[in-house]
Amino acid sequence: MKEITVEELKAKIDNNEDFQLIDVREPFEYETSNLDGENIPLGGILIEADKIAKDKPVIIQCRSGKRSAAAVMQLEQAHGFTNLYNLKGGILAWQEAFDPNMPVY
């Protein structure tokens, strides 16, 4: 599985690179704090796979990186995606590296 660090993600954001960010946490988690990604909870990721780009990098994130890793594996196996990256450490790593005041649980 391909992974990307929060530092690499921040560089992509700062450079206005073309990619899609998917947050697979539950809506209440997303409302607490998010990185402006599209919220598609893990439970519905296969049903909503048509919302995920196949023509550019897609970074999948969650709280710690475990659910997003599961999402990457499910999408690769069920739909043949080859452009997915798991955000290593999830939003907790983002908070630690860049935004210590970000509310997380």
Rank of each mutant, 00 (worst) to 15 (best):
C62G: 03
A97Y: 01
L92V: 14
L46I: 07
A11F: 04
P41N: 01
K66E: 07
Q77T: 15
W94P: 08
E76V: 08
S64M: 05
V72Q: 03
P103R: 00
G65I: 03
E3Q: 10
N101K: 12
M102F: 05
V6Y: 01
K10N: 06
D36G: 06
D55A: 03
K56R: 05
T82C: 09
I91A: 03
R67G: 05
D99R: 06
D99A: 15
N86E: 09
P57S: 01
G65A: 03
E96G: 15
I59V: 12
D14I: 11
G65F: 04
I13F: 02
R25D: 12
S33K: 00
L9T: 09
A71Q: 02
A53F: 05
G90P: 11
K2N: 07
I52W: 03
A78N: 09
D99E: 15
G65H: 00
I45T: 08
A70G: 07
K2D: 13
I4D: 07
A71L: 13
Q61T: 05
V24S: 04
D50R: 04
G37N: 01
G80H: 14
D55T: 06
Y30E: 06
D23T: 13
P103T: 08
I4K: 07
V72P: 07
K12P: 03
I60V: 13
Q61C: 09
G89D: 09
G43M: 12
F19H: 00
D36W: 08
P103E: 05
K66L: 09
Y30D: 15
V104R: 04
N83D: 08
L21Y: 12
P103W: 01
I13W: 00
A69V: 02
K88W: 06
M73T: 14
G65T: 02
E17C: 08
G37E: 13
V24H: 01
Q95V: 15
T82P: 11
D23I: 10
D50P: 02
A69W: 00
A11E: 10
P100S: 05
L92C: 07
T82V: 15
I45R: 01
L46S: 12
L9C: 07
Y85H: 10
P41F: 09
L84S: 02
L92T: 02
I22N: 02
G80L: 15
E48P: 12
G89L: 12
C62P: 09
E96Q: 12
K54A: 10
G80W: 11
K51F: 10
F98Y: 14
N39D: 08
E29C: 08
Q74T: 04
F98S: 05
F98C: 03
K88Q: 15
K2P: 10
K51W: 05
I91S: 04
G43C: 10
E38F: 11
Q74H: 04
K51D: 10
L9R: 05
